[in-house]
Amino acid sequence: MKLKLITVILFVKFSCIFGQEYIYYCSRPTPTTTTWQVYRKNLTTSVTQTITNDPNYNYWRAEPSPDNSKLLIVRSPANISPDQENYVDCDIVKCNPDGTGMQVILANNQYGWHAFGNPHFHPIGNRILLLVQPTSTAQWNLFTIDPSGNNPQQITTTGAIDANWSPIGNKIVFVSLVGPSLLDLEIFKANYNYTSNQVSNIVQLTNDTTRNHDPCFSPNGDKIAFCGGNANLTDANIITIDTSGNNRTDVVNDNGTHGGNVNWGTNNKIYYHSIYVSTFTNFMADDFNCNTNMVESIFTSPTIHYLHPFYINQTITNVKVNSLATDLITVYPNPAITTISVKGLTNDNYSYEISDMYGKLILEGEIKENEKINIENFSKGIYFIHSKEQKFLPQKFIKE
């Protein structure tokens, strides 16, 4: 007797609860005979979880995907360099948020590049931005790859490092060298077209006497934070500007070096690492609370280094099997400007709701397969469409 294998696709209803806050970071004890590894601390429960534990590699710059389902990490062989940020010998790996299921998506020398690093998921999640130096004498520039590490494409040609996406992925902020000195590293922004995978309208935002690095956008996209300091970065501040380059404010300005993987959390705190060269020999992790205008210490120890804190507010889901659902539901185009359609529906009418990233209901109605929904009057941002009858999982799209 033959057994027939029947695959049933179940719809899963998610009840979302916000408030589980995490910090990903890399750390190692002193002295420097040990390797850098990645950890995750739950700020709600204070429980710390080890994400990587491999003495053969240094791991650094961990960053989750937009849906928090995957983690990007850069690693390099410990026997070649005892330090992190070895861009010449590194790989980029992807794993589950707890470190399981690790796979190399971009191996060292996979495309013959001399060096690469600093990967960032696009807000949609299906494209990765990274820095590449094709040869040892070439300029660094920005490239993209897909989440599997394939389809590399160069998107800048005039030199660029330390890049980051805007919250909805329609702009990129980066650093470029405009003169012979490290003090000539300036902040730039550019428009980004997701469909063509091209940048345009590159604008220089700073023109100062500081060495600028690691810019990032604020959660609402109207400001940029970065670190700026002297040529040796023995004194570097955390600075904010608006997206026109105006209203420059040194929000953290003391005798320390502040910077690293600067990121502006949805809780309106700017995260970075610090070291006070004259008084404290270990790196610590801090944040600047934009709500209180105060610096807050996250990790500090005389025997442990802490680098690259990255904040997420993760959605915790209670899962309930509810009903049968169709597979391969997609929203297109994505990003969109005037209309969206849903592909993969049956011939039925579907009652839908569209909400913004904060859960506010924006639009509701009925839709059929490939029927257009007008979103022309939506504000730019991230939205979710779902079926009122719970016939397909919520789908994320971006309005440009």
Rank of each mutant, 00 (worst) to 15 (best):
K391N: 15
N253A: 13
D83W: 08
Y194W: 07
I73S: 00
F280V: 06
C216W: 00
D242M: 13
S218Q: 08
L205T: 12
N193T: 11
V8W: 01
G260T: 12
R211I: 01
R75F: 05
N164W: 09
A78M: 03
H386C: 00
I92V: 12
E296S: 12
L205R: 14
Y24S: 14
N42I: 14
E371M: 01
N370G: 04
N370S: 03
I202N: 06
R248T: 14
S355D: 01
Q103R: 06
H213R: 13
D356A: 10
N334H: 06
Y352P: 04
N53Q: 09
N151C: 11
H305T: 00
D235N: 05
E400F: 05
P134R: 08
E389N: 14
E85H: 02
L185M: 11
V342E: 02
T326K: 08
L307A: 13
D98C: 06
Y311P: 12
P167K: 14
K388S: 12
S301V: 07
I202T: 14
N191G: 04
T300R: 07
Y39Q: 03
I337E: 12
I340S: 12
I304M: 13
D327L: 04
P333A: 10
Q395E: 15
G159E: 06
G101V: 00
E85Y: 05
N42R: 09
N232E: 12
A225N: 12
V262N: 06
N232R: 08
H308N: 13
L131F: 01
I145K: 02
I382E: 07
N313F: 05
V331Q: 04
E364Y: 04
S46K: 12
N170E: 06
N212S: 10
C95F: 07
C227E: 10
I367D: 09
S218R: 14
G381Y: 05
I275G: 01
E296H: 06
Y111H: 05
E366N: 15
T157F: 09
Y306Q: 04
S81R: 10
T317Q: 15
